[in-house]
Simulated assay, not measured.
Amino acid sequence: SGAAAREARVLGGGSATVFPAHVVAPLDGLRAALPEGTLSYEVGADPNNELDVAGQGFALRAVCRDEAGEILASVPLAGGHIQWMGSDLPDGVTYDTLHSIEVTGTFTPRESGEHVFGTRGIGGFKVVIAGRELFEGSVEMGAATDPFEAFFGQPTERGRLELTADEPVELSVFHTVAKPEGLPIQAVGFTVLHQNPVHDPDELIARAAEAARGAETAVVVVATTERVESEGFDRADLKLPGRQDDLVRAVAAANPRTVVVVNAGSPVEMPWRDDVAAVLLSWFPGQEGGAALADVLTGAAEPGGRLPTTWPAVLEDAPVVNTTPTDGKLEYTEGVLIGYRAWEQAGRTPAYPFGHGLGYTDWTYESVTVEPAAEDGLTVTVRVRNSGSRAGRETVQVYL
């Protein structure tokens, strides 16, 4: 369960965005790896309670035209987001000759109900879905202090349509390219947005818990969203957005064999961590994330990673929470008391320390020797034995 199971967040936001040729979501990866009919799915909780980039269910192309309407290029799109910087333009297209871009294709809904469509960006827009014109007009550049934020604009709803599950509809978003002065780089960018029908959150969680009750194993995928974790702004807290914590608690109460997959790029609070059978951190896994996740959950591969950061149980436990400069200055009052030293000084215990990580085997540390080395150094030798029944990997850590 979990909305992130069907629409994984495979990469970070802002300038970290790239455009993979395809994306394997966790649900797709598990369906391909497991026998047919053995996997059921419930949304459970959807943190994307607003317009998001058109993705799952959309088959799109970008048709680039010059001012006379002649086609310069037609290229496939992995999703509804176009962000071409400098020389990133498709072959045959230049910034000077490009006048309009039409995002065209089909959308096949996964569920029936009222679907919302929108755009983000400046310039002219004409939005036609299923033969109905939802919007035609122009959007001016905003007054944001960040020129790129002003250029890409705010997500804006353009219309709603009642659609039927599994019945594809034609889509066309015609965009007249804006070329404002003052940008540090020649950029072309806008986004086609979509939101699935909104359902009662309590009902969604109840349905997920009921499905988990009858399952051998329950897998919940939770995630951050670009609204709470992205390049260009600080996070306000470490909480998972929406009702995802409630979903995990309900599923774990229904099935003790619950595995939680955390799809995030940095620490999040996990108040349910002691109530579930396992927690797997997938980070932002890239386009093959769903296939890799299936390999790990089925045992074909071991989750051998170790944390490069320390994760607090709650944000307030973290040694440093104030990183906002005052009068242009940020004082590092902690001095050398950073990292694990800061936790020791505060007398607090993190939920998961730097270097933490488990796998599918057991390790025994049999001996350690410390010997002098050249230039007043030391050589530490550790004898480690894989005392379990499977191959695996281990990372030895030494703290001075």
Score class of each variant (00 low, 15 high):
residue 145 T to P: 05
residue 294 A to T: 07
residue 133 E to Q: 02
residue 341 R to M: 15
residue 76 P to T: 14
residue 325 P to H: 01
residue 68 A to P: 12
residue 315 L to E: 14
residue 256 P to G: 09
residue 116 V to T: 08
residue 313 A to E: 10
residue 141 M to C: 15
residue 289 G to E: 12
residue 174 F to A: 02
residue 351 A to M: 04
residue 6 R to G: 11
residue 190 F to V: 00
residue 21 A to R: 12
residue 399 Y to F: 04
residue 23 V to D: 01
residue 39 L to E: 14
residue 142 G to H: 12
residue 11 L to K: 12
residue 100 S to M: 05
residue 284 F to H: 05
residue 162 E to S: 08
residue 340 Y to W: 08
residue 287 Q to G: 13
residue 179 K to M: 10
residue 175 H to Y: 11
residue 37 G to Y: 00
residue 266 S to F: 15
residue 285 P to K: 13
residue 61 R to M: 12
residue 4 A to V: 06
residue 2 G to S: 14
residue 301 A to W: 01
residue 41 Y to D: 11
residue 30 L to Y: 01
residue 92 G to C: 02
residue 105 G to A: 10
residue 141 M to P: 01
residue 293 L to M: 11
residue 217 T to P: 12
residue 52 D to T: 13
residue 7 E to N: 10
residue 370 V to N: 12
residue 118 G to I: 01
residue 297 L to D: 03
residue 208 A to Y: 12
residue 128 V to D: 14
residue 355 G to R: 08
residue 273 R to S: 05
residue 112 S to I: 14
residue 359 G to M: 11
residue 343 W to V: 00
residue 104 T to W: 05
residue 1 S to A: 15
residue 205 I to T: 03
residue 282 S to P: 00
residue 176 T to A: 11
residue 314 V to D: 14
residue 68 A to S: 08
residue 124 G to V: 09
residue 49 N to C: 13
residue 367 S to M: 10
residue 75 V to H: 04
residue 389 S to Q: 12
residue 187 A to W: 13
residue 64 C to E: 09
residue 83 Q to G: 06
residue 256 P to E: 02
residue 105 G to F: 06
residue 315 L to M: 07
residue 145 T to D: 10
residue 43 V to S: 01
residue 75 V to N: 07
residue 218 A to S: 07
residue 12 G to T: 13
residue 163 L to A: 01
residue 400 L to K: 12
residue 82 I to W: 02
residue 27 L to K: 02
residue 376 D to A: 11
residue 82 I to G: 04
residue 391 A to C: 15
residue 107 F to N: 14
residue 397 Q to T: 15
residue 232 G to P: 00
residue 229 E to R: 12
residue 117 F to E: 05
residue 368 V to H: 14
residue 275 D to K: 07
residue 27 L to C: 05
residue 247 L to A: 06
residue 376 D to G: 13
residue 119 T to L: 10
residue 53 V to G: 12
residue 189 G to R: 07
residue 379 T to M: 14
